[in-house]
């Protein structure tokens, strides 16, 4: 069964076609990879799914619900969480507070309840802190809870982004280059984390430049080049696809 369906999606930037009629399905419950050379439109596809950009044509369906053009925070509330390629944390707030941001959409207390310090509000706060701490233990940041986000190492900041996304109880988590800036050791731990996320029943969608990571973790891969889908299939199929090889060797990147 398909969890997310991206259907004939088109996005222009000025006169440039950034995403050109792309269609794919993300099956429920696995690890899905979206790869391609620099500028292929991968992040743009992510931004279209999460409502950061408005698409020009096509539609996006999540759990049989049309989410095309929906505001980002509503998309998150429906169960799609994301991380950012160029790390966007609330840098002057504590690690714990960063994770609480993710849980925000699962809470209900408003301004008036807070001003009156209603019992429900206090119980909910406590529950939220518990959940956030659990997410931090899950990613291994439990001991960092009271640090400021900006004081974390680069790799830990990426983990914190993942914790924040997980705290929103997603059905689908979209990771935009989670291994960027990580060393070999951290990358191995990341693969393990991604598998553990999947084992929680959360579908993982991954954009990654690190090919070895993609091939190790993903069960299903879509390859984009110049905004078009050029290949789709299991890692074995993708590895031997001549179009993919050409796309990577033909580009000036040496990501393979």
């Amino acid at each position: 069964m398909s969890l997310l369906r991206v259907e004939n999606v088109v996005k222009y930037f000025g006169g440039l076609v950034a995403v050109d009629n792309v269609t794919f399905d993300v099956p429920d419950g696995g690890i899905f990879g979206l790869i391609g050379p620099n500028g292929a439109g991968k992040t743009t596809v992510f931004n279209l799914i999460t409502g950061n950009y408005k698409l020009d044509k096509g539609r996006i369906v999540f759990r049989d619900m049309d989410i095309t053009g929906m505001l980002t925070h509503r998309v998150v509330a429906l169960g799609i969480a994301r991380t950012f390629q160029n790390i966007r944390l609330f840098s002057n707030m504590s690690v714990l507070e960063n994770v609480l941001a993710g849980y925000h959409c699962r809470m209900t207390s408003g301004a008036v309840a807070a001003m009156l310090r209603l019992p429900n509000q206090r119980a909910e706060e406590r529950r939220a802190v518990g959940r956030a701490m659990a997410e931090l233990h899950f990613t291994g940041l439990g001991s960092q809870a009271e640090n400021l986000a900006k004081n974390l190492s680069y790799g830990n900041q990426r983990l914190l982004e993942i914790s924040r996304a997980l705290a929103s109880d997603p059905g689908l988590i979209i990771l935009d280059e989670p291994a960027g800036g990580m060393n070999e050791h951290e990358t191995t731990a990341l693969v393990d984390l991604i598998l553990r996320i999947r084992n929680r029943g959360i579908t993982v969608m991954l954009i990654e430049h690190d090919m070895s990571l993609v091939m190790r973790a993903c069960e299903h891969i879509v390859v984009l080049e110049h905004g078009k889908k050029i290949a789709e299939g299991t890692p074995e199929v993708i590895k031997s696809d001549p179009k993919v090889i050409e796309a990577y060797l033909g580009s000036e990147d040496d990501d393979i």
Binding site: V76, C105, S168
Partner: peptide, 30 residues
Amino acid sequence: VFYLLEHSRYGRALKYLCSDSIAAEGSGID
């Protein structure tokens, strides 16, 4: 009253969007 507001879900939401409104929206905050 404002002290309670500051240290609540509501107050945090304002601080998130102050810090980075795209990240706040992306974390599910309206």
